[in-house]
Amino acid sequence: MLIEHLPPESHTMTALRNNLSQAELDAQADKGEPEKGRWSQLEQLMAANIDAIRRLEYVLICINTEKKSQRPDPPEPMRRPGAGPRKKTATLTTTSANRLFELLQGGAA
């Protein structure tokens, strides 16, 4: 029980991995689900850095692209353990925007 909860970078877990045959390593790689693994605070901070760099790159591309149709989709955040993929958010249509503007200006009364 104690060995199962050691961090992956511990000497014991490293020794166990080093003793696996190539077939065992391949089998583990095929069925691996890293998003279900435990992450340390350092790994969480690294994922936050990767997300920030991806957003900065996206903004840089958007600023230097003249046509909106040529802009890439916004980057997906890096998957975190225990978190599923993000749901797509609804876009605001012109009709919805006008209705929202009316409501904000007191049009609901």
Rank of each mutant, 00 (worst) to 15 (best):
T14R: 13
M78S: 13
G84C: 04
Y58Q: 02
E4N: 13
A27R: 15
G106S: 07
E66A: 11
G84A: 07
A47Q: 00
T14V: 11
K88H: 10
A29C: 07
P75G: 07
D73V: 04
A109T: 11
T94K: 08
T93Y: 06
P74S: 04
D51S: 02
H11G: 06
A90P: 00
L92I: 03
D26E: 15
N49H: 11
I3Y: 06
Q22P: 00
A47Y: 01
N49D: 14
L25P: 01
R38S: 11
E35S: 14
A52M: 10
G82K: 02
M1L: 11
P75I: 06
Q28C: 08
A90T: 06
K68P: 03
Q41A: 08
M1K: 10
M78H: 10
R99C: 08
L104V: 10
Q44M: 12
L92F: 03
K31R: 11
T89K: 14
A83E: 12
Y58K: 02
D26L: 09
C62N: 00
F101I: 13
E43N: 02
T89Y: 03
N49A: 09
A27I: 03
A83M: 11
T95N: 09
P85H: 09
P85K: 13
L103Y: 13
S21M: 05
K36Y: 05
E35P: 00
R38W: 07
K31W: 02
P77D: 05
L2P: 03
E24A: 07
A15W: 06
G37A: 14
M78V: 15
I3L: 10
R71Y: 02
L6R: 08
R17T: 01
M78F: 10
N64M: 10
E66F: 13
N64L: 13
K67T: 06
E24K: 02
D30T: 12
L2A: 14
M46K: 15
R99F: 08
K68A: 12
T93M: 06
R17G: 00
L104P: 00
S69M: 09
Q70N: 13
E43K: 10
R79T: 01
G82N: 03
P77L: 02
F101V: 09
K68H: 11
W39L: 03
A109P: 13
Q28M: 15
Q44P: 00
P74W: 03
